[in-house]
Design a protein around this nucleic acid. Structure first.
Lengths: 345, 345
DNA sequence: TCTGTGTGATGGTACGTATCATCACAGGAG
DNA sequence: CTCCTGTGATGATACGTACCATCACACAGA
């Protein structure tokens, strides 16, 4: 039957309670919801009788029925475009999950992880006939490689969504990190250390945050902070490109993330004249015992803010204008970004 | 409104599809479920017309309605008696979550984390009026400190549950680790290293796995493997009790878990005549650079097995007799359990 | 013509909850 | 006695899906 069998296990319903208390199902519902409309009134005596029956029979509302009746049920969906708890991805998702769980507990919400969404073309697909996210009052979207069109459709439908990470599509609410400001701050620090020319090695991914970094590098170059050359490389070309940069006399190689920075750092470990830094989170990454220079991103706080925003949108409290949020991060000085005059061992 | 507002966002229902295709809602349902009963038959032409309408209008079934109609909807609940993704507990729960996510994906199920269940008396309460686990087809239960009575009630109702960790209550299905066998194996190894007398320091917790360890120690003593004294200690008394054991000439101090073992190890770090071992997972725990001796528990695999068992129970495929499973672990020799003749630095 | 039979589809109802419109009744005013 | 009003509670219905019982129809056989 593959999980499609009859799963009715409930025994005690409002009707059952009504029978015990000698009232109607409607009255039970009214007591449960504390309805004090002008038209429906419950005197304390009846109310108490029903309450006792509820206690005694251990009544628990059926969330499916509540949902069907058009009410929210305090379930928030969590959609990740790749597995979130696997050994490989837990470094990235872990801090986010921490924040998500904390916030959900604080808000009194349960979390529906949409682990069943079918994988099409390497990433999970959100809009599919089998998807169950509509059971949730709203949905949190995590992952670099998001199909913004798909999400925009959902938003247009009126379904509450919040993305973690900046999005281009203006209709999508999001909570992200200000990569532009962080990039600029790191470059300013590099300039203070004597650097003048750098190369940014990247894979030319078109995600919003990747574009933010490139754009900030462009502004920095135009503004005379640092002259940054950008080069699109594949994973195989990384070391070659780094050595080329050194050969051109550049003193700093910037990378997209801590992994590539670590590889570049290893390739150049003998060359004290070239610094390396990542334009991403570098916690726990080191080259030859040296902490990789880069960013510290407030991932747990991002999750907090995202869940809070989602909750507000569900409650209709978030003005459309206040649905985009960029949080500040922190530059991690690290030990792989050193003074440019080099040879300072 | 605190999430209780009207959240109806759905637009396209079976009725809508029926209108488009010029058939009845019942026909749409039949097409969707591929019903080929003797009584209801859909010719290919009609079937195709409905299919086209479904595609065109991007129909997505409402899981709440499915559930209400008595069908499973491939949602598995995950109930943890404490936060699972917090910084403090991720060491313990992380590998379990990895297995849970993997299995859920493999089974095509979504996961409902019951983070909203109210905390009463230090642990989350499962049976509460506000709980939403009944939305799930079944529920996985995680946590040391489980209220077995509560779970037994649930099982008696016919609600599919599986606990991770052994349970006393025979009606509760579980997947656990064979602590008894592991304890015996560690003691046998200790004997081979020359140890004859040991003390087990524990907090006298009444969880099944704690009792299993104590019982195995008793069997080992009775069987002449090793003479193990057990002592109930509070956290404050730990170091004192460990020094007392050394004073009595015992050569091995056994602890309940890696944390207490590490503390005892630190207190006795200057005394090479006394070994320390934990009767629990010790991965990542060390004293003065020495890996703490203890167990390796197959936690990811436990989660796999537990989810698989849950799925089987939901499908009615698991005979009641096959609902209890103890997995073997592995003894981690480590470096804090040394030869008993000591002074071998 | 009547009866049976197979085909294609539909109407009605159940699931559990929320809500609106309605109703029975008592007591006071006219 | 009738009308009105406020009180207490209920019946009916909607939500979206699944499924059983039923029906209309055509066609063949007696």
């Amino acid at each position: 039957m593959a999980g499609n069998g009859d799963v009715r296990t409930r025994r005690v319903t409002q009707r059952e309670i009504a029978r015990i208390a000698g009232v109607s199902q409607a009255t039970v519902s009214a007591v449960l919801n504390g309805s004090t409309s002008a038209t429906v009134r419950i005197p304390p005596a009846t109310r108490e009788r029903v309450q006792r029956a509820l206690e005694q029979a251990r009544y628990v509302a059926d969330p499916a029925a509540r949902r069907l009746a058009g009410l929210g049920n305090k379930i928030l969906g969590v959609f990740t475009y790749e597995p979130a708890m696997s050994v490989e991805t837990v470094d990235f998702y872990g801090p986010l999950l921490t924040g998500i769980e904390e916030s959900a507990e604080r808000l009194g919400c349960d979390l529906l992880f949409l682990t069943a969404s079918p994988v099409v073309g390497g990433r999970r697909r959100l809009l599919d006939r089998r998807t169950r996210f509509r059971l949730a009052d709203g949905c949190l979207l995590l992952g670099q490689d998001m199909d913004e069109q798909e999400v925009a459709e959902l938003v247009a439908e009126g379904y509450p969504c919040v993305a973690v990470g900046r999005r281009e599509e203006p209709s999508i609410p999001y909570v992200g990190v200000d990569y532009g400001a962080l990039t600029l701050e790191l470059l300013t620090r590099a300039r203070a250390l004597g650097h003048r020319r750098a190369t940014y090695l990247h894979a030319d991914r078109q995600t919003p945050s990747a574009l933010d970094r490139v754009e900030a590098l462009g502004r920095a170059t135009a503004g005379g902070v640092l002259d940054v050359r950008t080069e699109i490389v594949t994973d195989d070309d990384l070391e070659r490109a780094a050595r080329d940069a050194a050969g051109r006399g550049e003193t700093l190689v910037l990378c997209e993330n801590a992994f590539t920075a670590a590889r570049v750092g290893s390739a150049l470990v003998d060359d004290d004249t070239v610094s390396v830094a990542a334009l991403g989170e570098t916690e726990g990454h080191a080259v030859a015992g040296r902490q990789v220079s880069g960013f510290r991103l407030p991932r747990t706080r991002m999750a907090h803010e995202a869940l809070t925003l989602l909750h507000r949108i569900i409650d209709g409290e978030a003005a459309p204008a206040k649905r985009h949020r960029l949080l500040p991060g922190r530059v991690e000085p690290g030990e792989t970004l050193r003074a440019a005059d080099g040879a300072s061992r």
